[in-house]
Amino acid sequence: MTIVAKDLVWGVRQKTIVDSVSLTVAKGETLGLIGPNGSGKSSLLRLLAGLKQPQSGQVEILGQDIARVPRRALARQVAFVQQDTTTDTNLSVRDVVRLGRTPHRSALSGWTETDRAVVLAALERVNMNGHIAQGWQTLSGGERQRVHIARALAQTPQVMFLDEPTNHLDIHHQIEILRVIRDLELTSVIALHDLNLAAMFCDRIVVLDGGTVRACGTPEAVLTQQLLRDVFKVEADVECSLTGSPHIRFRAQ
C-alpha cells in the first residue's frame, strides 16, 4: 500500500471536521474523494498530504509516518495541487514549473541538467511545452491548472494529491485535466465535485459525509441510487455506460 491512513481526526475549536477516517490507496491507483460541501474532502486531503497535522491518528506514505519526515524530504515524494491558486507576480510558465524543483535544490546549488530535463518533461506531459515563455497572467484557467500540475510533476513525486483540480473549468478542459492525471504513473488522490467525472476517471471512490467515510469501493459499487439519495439528497437514475462505469442521470424534480 502506498498510502495508509489510520483513524484521522481533525477539527477547528469544538467542531470535528474529519472524524476517524481510515483508508488505503494502492500503488498506481487513482482514488476519488467525493462528498457534499463541508463533508471534509479538502481537510482530509491536506491531512493526507501532511499540510495539516491530525489531532489523532497517523498517515503513512511509502511506509513512513509522514509526521516524522522533514518537509523537504516529504515534498520530494508527495506533491499537492490546490484548486485555482494564482498570483499577481508575472512569472513565466517555465519559472512556475521550476518552482517544483524547490525541494530538490539547496540554497546555493546551480540549475542542473536533471532539473532542466525534468521541467521540460513535466511541461510536455501536460502539453504546455508550446507556452514555455508565456506569462502567467496571460494564461487561461485550463492552462494555469495544467501548469500547476506540471509544477507538481517537476517535484518528481510518487504520490499526488489534487483538490478539485477541475474547478471553474469548462467540460472539455475538465476531461482533459482528468485524463492527464489518470494517465500519470503515480498514485493519486483527487477531491472531485462532479460524480460522473469521478466515476469515469477514478479506480476507486471514497464517499465522505459529515467527516466520516460513508462508502468506499469501485465506482459501480459505491455510486448507487440509495447512496445518492442519502448523502447528496438527490434523486437520480444510475445506468451502466458502455465502458462499464456507472453513469448518473439526475432527476429535475
Binding site: 515534498a75 499537492f80 490546490q82
Partner: peptide, 12 residues
C-alpha cells in the same frame, strides 16, 4: 509565490 500552503507543499 502561490501562497503559504503552496510553499509548504514545495517543502518549505
Amino acid at each position: 509565490t502561490f501562497g503559504d500552503e503552496d510553499a509548504a507543499a514545495l517543502g518549505v
